[in-house]
């Protein structure tokens, strides 16, 4: 499923409009411990997290993740934003919790798999 569609369905707010959303999302990973995400997230995954630290961009680049969704209305600082733009990693924001974001996305991706 395209990141753009997910962004629309979940009403995510792109923080980095310069970074395109025309990329494929392979699945999703929820986690706030960078070492855990480094070890276990899959390529092309959408990463749902509360972390806003600049290191999240490095993790996303290293694991080739499709995007970072920051939950609970948390706002990253300009360092994180700049790094995301320069590394071509979209950051999306939502006021919803990780549980709800993951819950909804799980249903969307499952429905897609059943159709496809």
């Amino acid at each position: 499923m395209k990141l753009k569609e997910i962004t629309e369905i979940l009403s995510l707010r792109p923080l980095t409009p310069a970074v395109g959303l025309e990329r494929e999302v392979s699945g999703a990973y929820v986690g706030d411990l960078l070492s855990d995400v480094m070890a276990n997230a899959g390529e092309g995954n959408l990463w749902i997290t509360l972390q806003t630290h600049v290191n999240i961009v490095a993790v996303a680049v290293f694991k080739n993740l499709s995007a970072i969704v920051i939950v609970n209305g948390r706002m990253p600082d300009s360092d994180t934003m700049d790094k995301a733009v320069s590394e071509d990693i979209p950051i999306l924001l939502t006021g919803k919790s990780a549980f709800e974001t993951a819950g909804k996305l799980y249903q969307i991706l499952n429905a897609q798999n059943l159709q496809g």
């Binding site: 960078l34 990253p76 600082d77």
Partner: peptide, 19 residues
């Protein structure tokens, strides 16, 4: 401010230091 932290990485890996 919510989310602001100066905690080192090892603290973050313990589930703390997220501001």
């Amino acid at each position: 401010q919510e989310g602001y932290s100066t905690a080192p990485d090892w603290v973050r890996e313990m589930g703390w230091g997220a501001g």
